[in-house]
Amino acid sequence: MQAGDTMTDVEPRQGAPRKTEVPLTDTAVLSAKPLLHIEDVSLFYGPKQALFNIDLEVREHSVMSLIGPSGCGKSTLLRCINRMNDLIPNVRIQGSVKVGDDDIYDPAVDVINLRKRMGMVFQKSNPFPKSIYENVAYGLRIQGVKDRAVLDEAVERSLIASGLWDEVKDRLKESGLGLSGGQQQRLCIARAMAVRPEVLLMDEPCSALDPLATSRIEELIFELKRDYTIVIVTHNMQQAARVSDFTAFFWMGKLIETGLTEMLFTNPRVRMTEDYISGRFG
């Protein structure tokens, strides 16, 4: 504290008022209600346990990053959210995963309908060997939508939302496979969005992309959270720090720490988290 005023021949450094710290987190997500409720989830591949009693909530219109070393269970947990693990033989899941009030493991749940609510984007872009238009319209077509105007609207809306419209609007009939890697990934995001899911699940969506394409996807994630709730698995610490509101750190199938991204990356509570994000292990 500076003592009483008096004459001085130096510039007082602290004369200018300092601003109070403003959290970098989008403050709206702090008051958002949880959409995904993962409660006491354990998963077994045959006799091997891959997830241990995971409790995690993801708030509406927020981005949650799942981080951790390879094999820690983050992608396994992501696949629990849209029941993709059902496709793997000998998988057993305990606990509950709810979207809103709906338990997605309720035997009465229609898995196809569930996956419409959970768009998924994979590590490697996987456009179908079809035109750009048909890639985006695919989800709606298999739902039985035939009305051309409805399809046109969905394709345009999704391509605009994925930031691809201006680049492809004049060649919608060309093959999706002719796009660059970054464009193909945004095409897959557009395809996932066409059926208006509630949640977007992204499994290392930028790991095969160059920095520029990565940057575009990250900007897109930032835009998309206005309309979607996003869960992203990433090995890139800087990416987790840049795009997510909340981060969860996993190790050996256990959730070690979760919290606001800015807190987890500046002042983690658990030593293991600190060591991992600082590159001391993993």
């Binding site: 610490m237 990356f265 600082s278």
Partner: peptide, 9 residues
């Protein structure tokens, strides 16, 4: 180095 946590602090 893009540091985090105690390194960043």
């Amino acid at each position: 180095r893009a540091p985090f946590a105690s390194d960043l602090r």
